[in-house]
Design a protein around this nucleic acid. Structure first.
Lengths: 333, 333
DNA sequence: CCTACTCCTGAAAGCGGTTTCAGCAAAGGG
DNA sequence: CCCTTTGCTGAAACCGCTTTCAGGAGTAGG
């Protein structure tokens, strides 16, 4: 591999000059510049990223720590991050927390050690307080995506889950539903609590009394949604619509409803949350609250770049508003 | 940040000795070793990865270039790669080709420049010959996953698509179907051709004549599957089963069948390919040929590590066999 | 008791860039 | 016409680690 030294010798200039041509830090006379460029071309020279990083103490990479690499949502977040980071000529190093708090910790250390210039984390298993401590004590800028931790609010990019829960519920109410069940998510996750709060808020707005018997916990997974729906049906309280805490639990609920001989949307309307692409593949296609994962990833990436002084310095949206993706799973009661 | 120098001074030894206890390259006396470890602990010292890489010319990272970051299949491949790479204390740098040949090229250069120790690529848009040339000319070990290019066969990890096509078709034949349609994939992709070949092979095995009118191209996407199925129906040739080239086109086909008033599986049986998790969410849940993406990613990662001399040196499976995931979309005619 | 190995250790030379610093030439100001 | 700027340039220091090399102490062999 050619080094900067080889280039400088071939071009008959100093290494410093080659470096200056390369980085455009200081003007270089046209004759030398062209000589250098010619030499670079001729040797097929590529700067050694390690040497550069060592000298500048910049890695030209940002780290992404996600909860689970194979999930659809995180794929979109990563894609969002990658698109802006790569457009800035930087790289992305990704690591997964495998949905376990200890592994999240390990991956976090891993990436820090790797000295990425900034870190974007999207993890669930680690608690708010601990995560906030990580963020504050880290020696590099860290941003959190998909989660709102008030203590470090300016470092979070998240969806307004309360508004999302209210949006879904209000949508059902406006179509005439009064008896609306809710399949809640994993209650240790703030998102789940916020969505439930939004549900209650929308009910209250319309003078509908909150009934605990209409709420069951689905844990954000399909199997949980399935069982939660079975519980709701077993309680023999009538309802004409269900707001599921996420699309996966909605899929499970759909299955349970089908098995109970109930038709969606004719007998029961169903709304999900997230707008993963499974929402589109379910039958009937699921009406759901859209969470703009890719945009959120982009926003987090911009925050990170801004923190490094190489961003666009425009104001970056931190709190995203939910939007409803209307499909075929809702009708009037 | 503490450096190796700080550690060496605190421990009253040379930098070389610190390096040696760090890497275990050469024995160090117990007294010095404990002094060094104490100093490291006290200073919270973490070696600088750049300096180390510069000195060793090893990045401790392997690069992954995937076609599209947000797809379910690639998520599993990445997860597979990450699991083995991280277990070996190395990192993964990922980049996306965004399903475009020029961007694939750019990302490839990007990662090479970044001097990852090895590269794993999973891309579609670049042609066989060109990709083979990249692989052979690269200055680092490169492996291809999800694709079989005979010229560089030992560097490919792939599914036996022909066997998969035959498996699906045979499965249908064994259940009594004789008139089986095929929704082919994107014919410029070898996978699609191989699956079609497998389909024909299974037909031939059972003395069923191949009928071109029973094949339509679905381009591996949902919309294409939808239209392909409409074409097949419009041709008014009777068939009792369909083998779709992948799960996404199967989903489209399912939709078209439903709109045509045909029930799956009672009127028409349907088999997909890939076993993405949408297969599970479709209604009826899709019987499909499973492609073990995560395992394939792992295999590719092992090949890469072996090439670097830090693998397990066990024989690594390169060609994976398809397995049928039986669900609810097939029945006897 | 002397020589020949071992075994461990430290000094120093890289790895391949960036950046400071000083210097020289040309240009501008008085 | 002399002095100060300005603009480029090269030498050299430095980033933090690994690794070679030479040497000293301790042990074994003769």
């Amino acid at each position: 591999m050619a080094t900067i030294r080889d280039v400088s010798q071939l071009a008959k200039v100093s290494q410093a000059t080659v470096s200056r041509v390369l980085n455009g830090t200081v003007p270089v006379s046209t004759t030398k510049r062209t000589a250098v460029l010619a030499a670079i071309e001729q040797l097929g020279y590529q700067p050694n990223a390690f040497a550069r990083s060592l000298a500048t103490n910049r890695s030209q990479a940002i780290g992404a720590l996600v909860s689970e690499l194979s999930s659809a949502a995180y794929g979109d977040i990563i894609r969002g991050i990658e698109s802006v980071v790569e457009a800035r000529g930087m790289h992305m190093v990704v690591s997964s927390g495998h949905a376990r708090s200890d592994l999240e910790r390990r991956s976090f250390e891993f990436l820090k050690e790797r000295r990425t210039d900034a870190l974007i984390v999207q993890i669930d298993a680690t608690g708010d307080d601990e995560l906030a401590a990580w963020v504050e004590q880290a020696s590099l800028p860290v941003f959190v995506v998909g989660r709102h931790i008030p203590a470090i609010g300016d470092r979070c990019v998240y969806l307004d889950n309360g508004a999302g829960g209210a949006l879904a519920t209000r949508y059902l109410i406006e179509r005439g539903h009064r008896h609306i069940a809710h399949i809640a998510g994993l209650m240790r996750i703030p998102d789940a609590r916020d969505r439930l709060a939004g549900y209650r808020e929308a009910l209250a707005e319309h003078g509908i009394e909150y009934d605990e018997a209409l709420v069951a916990e689905g844990g954000f997974v399909e199997e949980g949604g399935y069982r939660a729906m079975q519980q709701l049906l077993a309680r023999e309280i009538s309802f004409t619509a269900v707001f599921a805490g996420n699309d996966q639990s909605a899929a499970g609920a759909l299955k349970a409803l089908r098995e109970a001989g109930l038709n969606v949307p004719d007998d029961v309307s169903l709304v999900g949350f997230d707008d993963l692409f499974i929402a589109h593949y379910l039958y009937p296609a699921l009406t759901t609250v859209r969470q703009p994962f890719a945009e959120m990833g982009q926003a987090a990436a911009w925050l990170a770049l801004n923190a490094l002084g190489i961003g666009q310095e425009e104001e970056v949206t931190r709190r995203f508003d939910p939007v409803l993706s209307e499909r075929d799973s809702v009708t009037a009661p």
